[in-house]
């Protein structure tokens, strides 16, 4: 019988329905993650820190320009930006939403 090949007709029907999203799979976990190589992780962490720092500094400078309070907002948002950078790296290893799905 042709149906005996891969678990029979029922199994194939179930697979097809799951793929189309008609049946909800029980554990909707992530099937793929980001590539994890030492270089990839290292570069990503660096980019995350620098980009958060840059965003913080830009916000600080813009606020200072607007309110004429140089350098106080710059200093404040410099610290905030570094904290956000550390937070980004933390999120890189511990995604915020626990189990995805």
């Amino acid at each position: 019988m042709a149906d005996e090949r891969d678990g029979g007709f029922e199994q194939r029907l179930r697979d097809a329905r799951a793929k189309r999203g008609l049946d909800k799979p029980k554990d909707a976990g992530p099937t793929q993650g980001l590539p994890t190589g030492p270089w990839g992780i290292g570069f990503r962490a660096g980019v995350e820190v620098v980009s958060a720092l840059v965003v913080g500094i830009v916000i600080g400078i813009v606020l200072d320009r607007w309110l004429g309070t140089w350098p106080w907002f710059f200093l404040l948002f410099f610290v905030m930006g570094s904290a956000a950078g550390v937070l980004n790296v933390y999120r890189l290893f511990n995604p915020r939403s626990g189990p995805r799905g």
Binding site: V55, M80, N88
Partner: peptide
Amino acid sequence: VPIEIISYLSRPVSLSVR
């Protein structure tokens, strides 16, 4: 909250710079 907002705003920067 400001740290979270900065972290959220840094997404497009890190995405494009990478």
